[in-house]
Design a protein around this nucleic acid. Structure first.
Ligand SMILES: [Mn+2]
Ligand SMILES: [Mn+2]
Ligand SMILES: [Mn+2]
Ligand SMILES: [Mn+2]
Lengths: 239, 239
DNA sequence: TCACTAAATTAGGTTTACCTAAAATATTTA
DNA sequence: TAAATATTTTAGGTAAACCTAATTTAGTGA
């Protein structure tokens, strides 16, 4: 069983840390502090405390990484976060672009019982409104086999699966040009060296920076899209 | 506009204080601390802080009372509390007896937007699952004209309107003997001097202590039951 | 390699919240 | 009314958060 109540700050920290970890590399204190909006000095002290609690591996000046114990907590919070998002859009009808912020508060007030009933009511959804997978009750995360839009080549066709970065400003920009999960796109042009992509969406053509495109995932319609990969907590993300 | 974020402890304190105030009398520090589960010394210090913020009138050794400003905050929290309860029972199907506890956490994570959409989705309900009135968006509380069950006389008939004390243990006892809002009862006997009442509920007879009976409100079926009283924050409860 | 700059940690000070124990005040009883 | 008792506040100490301002370490370029 996961320790009782860890406090909102601790939970937020683990949650964001999970999202930032890529390829099992350590995350920098500064990056974490920025995403969380915590002062850098508080961030350092908090990480030291988390290390004492066995929730992270922390090496001064080197960065921080979740332990298995910490990852378990993070995944529980992310489950509650994404279930909250589904609740806010599907049941209350809030705007897709703004649910992330509200869910980030709500998730800490969701008890085991509420989590269970909410999941039931929503029909055990597989993904949040942005297309990101909702962990199962026992902490599994089932990833669709998708790739960053930025890796597509000219003339390739694909369907948008998820927007990884849920920043409201970004989402509003994307929705304005028709980019959201489920939409079919075609790459018309791709400038070299991290330049922009030109996409065809429906009858329109839009340009997208490479950095933004890397935060959008797609599955190519040509590839078989019935394959799924399971990831247990403790394993690292894809690649 | 009400000050931004007052912290969970402050909100809980104002909420419970509102519930305990009767006849505009001051509430004792000890009673408040008990209901909140706060240590008594912390309670004292918190009340001093609230007094500095202008949320309560506090006289050492005498007790504490909400100011209009404090009452306004309390009513906002209670609105969110009771809307949360309705959500938990009506939408998620949680047990009537246990929603109070869950709502007490949830209420602090309900944003203005969520409050608005939740109210809409629920159809602007007038009362919580226990029958207590849900304040309107502008802080009005509309009381049904009801009286404590303990004030009924033998042979009087009445319908239960609300259970004021939402303690889960009490609610479970009450529901076990068929007492919940909407149920019709008749007083069979009433022992004098704060003794028990014997009630007829359906085909059964049950005995109820006077203290418990005072936490249950009823409207007598003989009296006209279309009358309502409005109470603005700042006014005192009934009587 | 050394100096310089950027990143990260530590130091010191404030607030809220908790705890225990001591002091002050109010209430009750003899 | 005076003493005994109960209630309530104050005092002193810890921990989590926050802040600002040193200090230390790491990374870079001359
Ligand atoms: Mn969050
Ligand atoms: Mn999401
Ligand atoms: Mn509450
Ligand atoms: Mn209620």
């Amino acid at each position: 069983m996961i320790g009782k109540d860890l406090g909102e700050k601790v939970e937020e920290c683990l949650e964001v840390l999970f999202r930032l970890e890529k390829n099992n590399e350590r995350v920098k204190t500064t990056e974490l502090a920025e995403k969380l909006g915590f002062p850098l000095s508080s961030m350092t002290v908090l990480l030291q405390r988390l290390a004492n609690m066995g929730l992270v591996e922390y090496e001064p000046y080197k960065g921080v990484r979740l332990t298995d114990k910490g990852r378990k907590v993070a995944i529980k919070i992310i489950r509650r976060h994404r279930l909250s998002e589904r609740f806010l859009t599907d049941i209350l009808g809030l705007d897709w672009c703004e649910v992330h912020e509200h869910a980030c508060k709500l998730e800490h007030a969701i008890t085991d019982k509420i989590e269970e009933k909410l999941d039931e009511k929503l029909g055990s959804p597989a993904v949040c409104p942005h297309g990101n997978p909702i962990p199962t009750p026992n902490g599994e995360i089932i990833f669709e086999k998708d790739i960053p839009l930025s890796e597509l080549q000219p003339a390739e066709e694909a369907i948008i699966t998820r927007i990884i970065d849920e920043n409201p400003a970004l989402l509003r920009r994307l929705i304005a040009i028709g980019i959201l999960p489920g939409v079919k796109i075609t790459v018309k042009e791709k400038s070299p060296l991290g330049g922009a992509l030109v996409l065809k969406i429906g009858d329109y053509e839009v340009a997208l920076g490479r950095d933004v495109a890397s935060k959008i995932c797609v599955k190519t319609s040509t590839a078989p899209h019935r394959h799924r990969r399971r990831m247990r907590h403790g394993a690292k993300s894809r690649k």
